[in-house]
Simulated assay, not measured.
Amino acid sequence: MTSRVLTLRMDGALLERLAQHAAQRRMTLQDYVVRALARDDFDQRFRASVERTERFYDS
């Protein structure tokens, strides 16, 4: 898998909170943010799949 660069601009307070959450989990800030984004992406895809299944069986 290739990696690419994503630059984010965020509020300093949010950055500090994210860094604290990452430190509590003994993760780098980068790893913490990537994992959070991947988890959110999975949740959205799972929800969409459930909705499609429900529509299929309701038809």
Rank of each mutant, 00 (worst) to 15 (best):
residue 1 M to S: 08
residue 1 M to H: 03
residue 2 T to E: 14
residue 3 S to H: 05
residue 4 R to Y: 03
residue 5 V to P: 05
residue 6 L to I: 15
residue 6 L to W: 00
residue 7 T to A: 09
residue 7 T to V: 15
residue 8 L to M: 03
residue 9 R to H: 03
residue 10 M to S: 04
residue 10 M to N: 04
residue 10 M to F: 10
residue 11 D to N: 12
residue 11 D to I: 11
residue 11 D to C: 08
residue 12 G to R: 13
residue 13 A to Q: 11
residue 13 A to H: 11
residue 13 A to K: 10
residue 14 L to Q: 06
residue 14 L to N: 02
residue 16 E to A: 13
residue 17 R to L: 10
residue 18 L to E: 00
residue 18 L to A: 00
residue 18 L to K: 01
residue 19 A to H: 05
residue 21 H to Y: 12
residue 24 Q to R: 09
residue 24 Q to L: 12
residue 25 R to I: 03
residue 25 R to T: 04
residue 27 M to A: 02
residue 28 T to A: 02
residue 28 T to S: 15
residue 28 T to F: 03
residue 29 L to H: 03
residue 29 L to P: 00
residue 29 L to S: 02
residue 29 L to F: 02
residue 29 L to G: 01
residue 32 Y to A: 04
residue 32 Y to W: 06
residue 33 V to A: 08
residue 33 V to K: 01
residue 34 V to Q: 04
residue 35 R to G: 05
residue 36 A to M: 11
residue 36 A to T: 10
residue 37 L to A: 13
residue 39 R to D: 06
residue 39 R to C: 04
residue 39 R to G: 04
residue 40 D to I: 00
residue 41 D to Y: 07
residue 41 D to P: 00
residue 42 F to M: 11
residue 42 F to G: 07
residue 44 Q to H: 14
residue 44 Q to W: 11
residue 44 Q to G: 07
residue 46 F to W: 13
residue 47 R to V: 02
residue 47 R to D: 05
residue 48 A to N: 09
residue 48 A to W: 08
residue 50 V to R: 13
residue 50 V to H: 07
residue 50 V to L: 14
residue 52 R to S: 14
residue 53 T to E: 15
residue 54 E to L: 14
residue 54 E to P: 06
residue 54 E to C: 08
residue 54 E to G: 07
residue 55 R to W: 10
residue 57 Y to C: 08
residue 58 D to C: 10
residue 59 S to T: 15
residue 59 S to H: 15
